[in-house]
Design a protein around this nucleic acid. Structure first.
Length: 580
DNA sequence: TCAAATACGTA
DNA sequence: CGTACGTATTTGAG
């Protein structure tokens, strides 16, 4: 293998105020471009062979907003998250980790309070830091004790020299990260490439937003929350309107605070229904006992839309261009799935007809089928389980081997991956252990590590810690055991969920690249589902490209073709439209 | 005023 | 005693 050959890396740092870009060449020389055309020429001239190193994709935001393509990047932050787990990946932390410095004594970021004045000059660095970069390496951002200056980040850069030194430091970290990732496993560097691209995609997703059909969305909101309130009085009146349907189901009840679970429980007791809690699944079991219960469940549904996805949400997150925007991150702090704000990942299906292509456009909707068991087959190397993935419906061959119904096989496989032990799953699990011992061993091993508070790794090499937040000292024996079990289930699931996230992102960023020529954009990533917005003439071609991208990226990711991934791909006007 | 607990939407 | 996240609300501590 020749993976150790030096990558063609160029560091990139932006001067926020000057509107310029500093580029550090592979030999350390720094050049600079200012103005859009000059910057674009500088970036695109080198694009085909260059991987652009930055501390984070967020630093590239101005270039991304200017729609520069940036196809090959190395995000120091994403590499750090892969190597060390968790979410925190500011430059100072990444630098210290790459240098092997103690993270416990990481200089704290500057405070804006009065105490900051008292502490000035006590950072272990020079009191009058030289803001000059030396040719041999970054002097200015680095303190005498080896840490990066806590008060420096990309928004504070003011000169070409500073930007150059900032980029040089990023490239130095990237080289160390690459070495570490090479040790981590055969897929880790490729994973870092796609995670870095996913971080750029995350900025693009926020830039482009999700196209919505405003009249339809407004109608759907009106149906649940009531007409748009103008005054605060209106708002209270709408709220009372929603409450009324529940309250009138129990005559003479008077005023009840439906938002207070204790009051609701009392309300139900008055109606002659005694429930241990007012949780939805509990209420559903008593739905036929009194008409107030269905009314309450419907109230909850409407109230969710009114409060979380109502008029305020629409005004806050949907722009005048009818795009729904929220911030995205390329990975969460646990197994590494993408996250999104503004409710983009939990939009009720009821509102999805309101997500629609802009005029003259269509949406290519694609979702991976049965992705987690297919990922299990890939990461475990269980050849029998891999054989099942060749089927369009993986659960059919599994059921056949288990000698059970498809439904039993499905429950068993999902239970195996989620660590469920209760109910009918227990029996069927034994069948899985008999027929697919290799896959089951991998899950059990991860679970045992989690129970012991030890980390696990995704197939792409991401470290997933299992001992993070809870203070395990001073726990009773029962608490300790339930904590260990929770960690075990988490670890068992994390190797699958996290590896699936890596495959998904590899697919998503391949789609991102390959639809660029069609002038199409990925506008939503939802764990196993992609929406691509495209002009209608190109929609069919785009759907084909999405399929091809899955074939290519999954083949690369798995490393062979004995595990198959499948996607449902359809061309629709609205997100809600049925798959074909 | 802030954090935890509760609840629930999505995968 | 299935996992994850984001959002809103209530509650209780400071």
């Amino acid at each position: 293998m020749t993976t150790s050959s030096a990558p063609r890396w160029r560091g990139l740092a932006l001067l926020p105020d000057a509107g310029g870009v500093a580029v550090v060449e592979t030999d350390g020389a720094t050049s600079m471009a200012t103005g859009r055309s000059e910057v674009e020429a500088l970036i695109t001239r080198l694009t085909p062979t260059t991987r652009w190193v930055t501390w984070s994709a967020d630093e590239l935001r101005p270039l991304i907003l200017a729609r520069l393509p940036l196809p090959r990047t190395w995000s120091v932050a994403e590499a750090h998250r892969l190597l060390h787990g968790g979410l925190r990946a500011d430059p100072h932390r990444c630098w210290a980790a790459a240098r092997g410095l103690d993270l416990g004594t990481l200089p704290s970021p500057p405070r804006t309070d009065l105490f900051a004045l008292l502490d000035e000059g006590e950072d272990g660095g020079e009191t009058e830091p030289s803001r000059t970069a030396s040719p041999g390496g970054p002097v200015w951002p680095v303190r005498r004790d080896g840490y990066l200056r806590a008060e420096v980040d990309h928004s504070t850069l003011t000169t070409l020299e500073e930007a150059g030194a900032w980029a040089v430091a990023a490239v130095q970290v990237a080289h160390a990260q690459r070495e570490a990732l090479q040790q981590r496993g055969p897929r880790a560097i490729a994973t870092c490439h796609s995670e870095s691209a996913a971080a750029v995609l995350a900025v693009e997703l926020e830039r482009d937003g999700l196209p919505i059909d405003r009249p339809v969305l407004e109608e759907l909101i009106t149906r649940s929350a009531g007409a748009r309130p103008i005054t605060e009085r209106d708002e209270l009146a709408r709220r009372a309107d929603r409450d009324r349907s529940v309250l009138e189901a129990v005559p003479g009840i008077g005023r009840v605070d439906l938002r207070n679970p204790a009051s609701v429980r009392q309300l139900l007791a008055t109606a002659g229904v005694d429930v241990p809690s007012t949780r939805k699944w509990v209420l559903e079991q008593h739905a036929d006992r009194h008409r107030v219960i269905p009314a309450l469940l419907d109230w909850r549904r409407r109230e969710r839309i009114a409060t979380t996805y109502g008029w305020r949400w629409l005004d806050a997150h949907v722009g005048p261009d009818d795009r729904l925007r929220g911030a995205w991150s390329a990975c969460d702090g646990a197994a590494g799935r993408m996250t999104a704000q503004a409710g983009l990942h939990s939009l009720p299906s009821e509102l999805r007809p309101g997500v629609a292509a802009a005029p003259g456009h269509l949406i290519v909707r694609a979702d991976l089928g049965q992705v987690e068991p297919r990922v299990l087959a890939a990461v475990s190397g269980d050849e029998a389980f891999a054989a099942a993935t060749l089927a369009e419906d993986l659960y059919l061959p599994v059921a056949q081997r288990l000698g059970s119904d498809r439904s039993v096989a499905k429950v068993a496989v999902l239970a195996a991956m989620y660590g469920q032990r209760s109910g009918a799953a227990g029996e069927a699990l034994r069948g899985l252990e008999r027929e697919y011992p290799v896959a089951m061993r991998l899950l059990d091993h991860a679970q045992r590590r989690g129970e012991g508070g030890m980390p696990v790794w995704t197939v792409g090499g991401r470290l997933v810690r299992t001992n993070l937040p809870e203070q395990s000292e001073r726990l009773g024996a029962d608490q300790r055991q339930s904590l260990a079990r929770a960690r075990g289930r988490f670890a068992r699931n994390a190797v699958i969920q996290g590896s699936a996230a890596e495959l998904f992102k590899a697919w998503a960023v391949t789609v991102r690249e390959s639809v660029r020529d069609l002038d199409a954009q990925v506008v939503l990533c939802l764990h196993d589902e992609l929406l691509v917005h495209v002009r209608q003439e190109q929609a069919q071609r785009c759907a084909d490209v999405v399929h091809e991208a899955l074939a290519a990226s999954s083949r690369r990711w798995v490393g062979h073709d004995r595990v198959r991934f499948v996607a449902d791909v359809s061309v629709v006007r609205r997100w809600s439209e049925a798959k074909d």
